[in-house]
Design a protein around this nucleic acid. Sequence first.
DNA 1: ATGTCAGTCAACGACTGA
Length: 261
Amino acid sequence: MLKIASWNVNSLNVRLPHVLAWTDVASPHILALQETKLPDDRFPADALQEAGYQSVFSGQPTYNGVAILSRQTAGDVVTDVPGLDDPQRRILAATLPTDIGDVRIVNLYVVNGSEVGSEKFEYKMHWLQQVTAWLAEEASRHDRMVVLGDFNIAPDDRDVHDPEAWREKILCSTEERSALGRIFDLGLRDTFRQFEQEEKVFSWWDYRMNAFRRKMGLRIDLVLASRAMAKRCVASYVDIEPRRQDRPSDHAPAVAEFDVS
DNA sequence: ATGTCAGTCAACGACTGA
């Protein structure tokens, strides 16, 4: 089994113990992290190496920052894409060897966008447009591809605790969902929806207003798989256990498992 | 009810972003 996960840790500095505890129990082969909020010279590669993970990362102080932890050595690392001369470290692609050959992993920390219609929202839409064009190229080069991360878009109303309250709000607007649809149209499937799921499964809950306790969340952390990988996907779920811990990230890991026999 | 966090700067509180 090949287990691949995505987790927005909201500061790897604070959350390193959570990551070590979770990887110890869940033992994913590949773990994509977002919002590490660390410059590269402070990335805790040694502690992760001791836990059995190699790391590639693209960070900056204070904001953003992405990493891929893996049992195997990553190659062909990409951190920047055409059309985005962007100091924000949100993109990290790498190729990982597996039992079925190389798998291309694309880790995305999609722009939040703040409010529909804001300047940040316009940046989000432009960012998605450029990233989608690049993903099309990646998809043409890599038959086996997994695109995962914090998409900052809830795919549809099933992914929202209160769809009416969120109607056309940031993370849920028609324009954002259409942009996500154009990524699905590249042949990338939301692995979570390949399986029957319980209602009200979310991956992010606001720190405010006891949102987690009240089950007021969104499913915005996704694991998408190319056709060749989707047909091998045997499970996809959110592991909310880390969200219950002390001093948690506001996100929980999204996990997909693939049959590589 | 934007009422929580995290990081930074600069100085222990204001700010930004999420």
